[in-house]
Amino acid sequence: MIYVSIIGFALIIIGLYGMLTRRNIIRIIIGFSIADTGIHLMMVSIGYLKGRTAPILDKAVDQADALQRVVDPVPSALVLTAIVIGLAVTALMLAYAVRLHEAKGSLDIHDFKELKW
């Protein structure tokens, strides 16, 4: 599962790079989404235990040996909700982008100087 950690790590850095260097607001939002996905992958990989299966009891995983057979359910639960929240936050950022474009007719972050010093 170290590979998933490495991919997640790379995605976080790529997303941050995109957020810091791109000028188009839509691309900054895409950078955020990439970093978000990377964070999810890292969280899931932390909860993984080698050779174990999903934390769902059925015919394959008996209740008696569940402690020896399943991965940690807590990071999975966290990532489950984090994905939906990431979706909602992305939608909110896109709504901001629409309003900014209406205000200035531009999506270039350098055209918005009101909060700069």
Partner: peptide
């Protein structure tokens, strides 16, 4: 890498099915 479940997860996975009756441990969490 962890070799076994963390204490919190052990409680959730050990007691969860009996106490709550949910087969999906992620859902009970």
């Amino acid at each position: 890498p962890f070799q076994e479940l963390s204490p919190v997860a052990q409680k959730y996975a050990g007691e969860g099915p009996d106490a709550l009756g949910s087969a999906n441990l992620v859902t009970s969490v």
